[in-house]
Amino acid sequence: MGVKYTWDELIVYRAAQEIRDGEIVVIGQGIPMAAGVLARKTHAPNSLIVTEAGMVGIDPFKVPLHIADTSCTRGYSYGCDMFDIFTTVVHRGYVDVAFLGVGQIDKYGNLNSSYIGDPNDYEMRLAGAGGAPEFAGYSQRTVYTLSGGEIVEKLDYFTTPGYVDGGNSRYEAGMPEGSGPSTLITTKGVFKFDRETKEMYLAGLHPGVSLEEVKAQVPWELKVAETLEITELPSEEEVAIIRDFSPELSVGRKLSIELITRRVLNVLSGRNTEA
């Protein structure tokens, strides 16, 4: 019997396995940052974390609030700017892996992070494109993590290119040969993309999850690998690293908000259990 873990900790652990030692990794915040830090503290100490705001080589001890948050790290090795990142780093082909969180994703790994519903009469305006389109477009590999988002047949709005219409369409559109989404990690399992058709298929399941549960979340006839991998579990040390770095991710969004709200109410009422 190993250490107890949460679903979000499992996603962080699984995402960290996508980073190899010596790679240049673009990360925004949240779960991917925890994955990057876990990788650097375990199997990939020579990997380099790059943020969109122009901070290269950060060594964070907590999750940055946004892409330009330098309060999470005691300095960094190379300070440039966002334009430099997208040209001299991304466009020149230095990025091995970009991590992106998913709002909506389709079968070819394209993303929507702009609107839910018809953009002319939408239900919800999302945070927007940010850096996702160019990162997904020009990094060698893109790794997606999905905890609150959804898998759809057709995106409400095409924000970020994955494999576009499948086949070679991504490369015909001008993105680097051989690049593209490599993995989608959800709270149920792990998806990969077919070498030829570029269609997303199920490659693995998290422990205790059934195939039917996954299929229920996918609105098309999902292809499934001949042998499904069962996601390995993190060790006690790895779970400790995640909880130390990002307790708010470990506990999940809902309970994290509950804890912070409780804290705010305590502060407002002048109570403090510490005192």
């Binding site: 107890k4 949460t6 679903w7 205790g208 307790p247 506990v251 309970l255 804890l259 305590n266 403090n272």
Partner: peptide, 19 residues
């Protein structure tokens, strides 16, 4: 969070999110 790491782990367990 105004709690210790041990209390935090207990909290997650009580809320049923630890597997």
């Amino acid at each position: 969070f105004d709690m210790t790491l041990d209390e935090f782990i207990r909290f997650m367990d009580e809320r049923g999110i630890l597997r």
